[in-house]
């Protein structure tokens, strides 16, 4: 019993003593035309002391998880919590105060797949794709700046940002989700600063094919032509 208590005390002490700051947490996810995605998460660590902490990744069904930048002997294990991938990060005893952790991963399906029940009405056109991302800071350390760059596959563009949470505070300039260009691709960028434990942020983006239907062109030209023909009298010279 004594040994057990001692072990528990040592474990608790190590956890309590462990400290780290996360000034930035950036995820770049490049979607491919087939719906798969390749992601890279770059996490800056500061004020590091040895110990272990669990870092949420904010994605499900992550494959091929790999440490790209094995910074200063940091060890990484992945696990699932409430269906979300979580990284168990172990900082070694000789960890420097500042380090960077870079992790790559693959997602089999980036877009949300909605299976309609028989007779159920679809809320989106068949050509639309929906990307949904939600992140909850489940660990105790503050994340200074959280940023997700979702790069659209070739041939698709944003139809609309369907959700962007939380609503920007009064002192925040610009929207929560911004459309921009990253590495030659249109991208939706989610940004949220100072994520405390329990804070969450999310975005839903609807994508549609870049090429628009020619229906508008044909209908517009037809209508315009028909009007010019049928309403000629508007400018006809009046006979005395």
């Amino acid at each position: 019993m004594k040994t057990l208590r001692l072990t528990a005390f040592i474990l608790l002490a190590s956890v309590l003593a462990m400290a780290v700051d996360l000034p930035t947490y950036t995820v770049r996810l490049q979607a491919a035309p087939d719906g798969s995605g390749q992601g890279i998460a770059t996490i800056a660590l500061a004020g590091c002391t040895p110990g272990t902490f669990n870092l949420p990744l904010g994605f499900t069904a992550v494959q091929d998880l790999r440490v790209e930048e094995p910074a200063s002997g940091i060890r990484l294990e992945s696990s699932e919590r409430n269906g979300m991938t979580q990284l168990k990060v172990t900082l070694p005893p000789d960890i420097p105060a500042k380090a960077t952790l870079k992790v790559s991963f693959r997602l089999k399906q980036v877009f949300q797949i909605v299976k309609l029940k028989p007779g159920e009405k679809s809320t989106l056109p068949a050509t639309s794709r929906t990307f949904k991302h939600a992140f909850v800071n489940t660990q105790e350390y503050l994340i200074g700046a959280y940023r997700v760059e979702f790069l659209f596959p070739d041939g698709l563009m944003a139809q609309a940002i369907r959700e962007q949470l939380p609503k920007p505070a009064k002192n925040e300039v610009g929207p929560r989700v911004l459309l921009s260009k990253v590495d030659g691709h249109q991208a939706a960028i989610l940004q949220f600063n100072k994520l405390q434990q329990g804070d969450d942020t999310s975005m839903i983006v609807e994508l549609v094919p870049t090429r628009r239907s020619f229906g508008w062109l044909i209908a517009g030209l037809l209508l315009g032509g028909l009007y010019l023909f049928k309403f000629k009298d508007l400018v006809a010279t009046k006979q005395p």
Partner: peptide
């Protein structure tokens, strides 16, 4: 009178022009 006559197709042409322009990176299709 001419403005009224040409306004209708003019409006449609402007609509088509903006709709089919290549989208700017910061602008959604909507």
């Amino acid at each position: 009178q001419w403005m009224r006559y040409l306004g209708f197709p003019g409006g449609i042409l402007l609509f088509l022009l903006i709709l089919y322009l290549p989208a700017g990176a910061g602008l959604s299709a909507g």
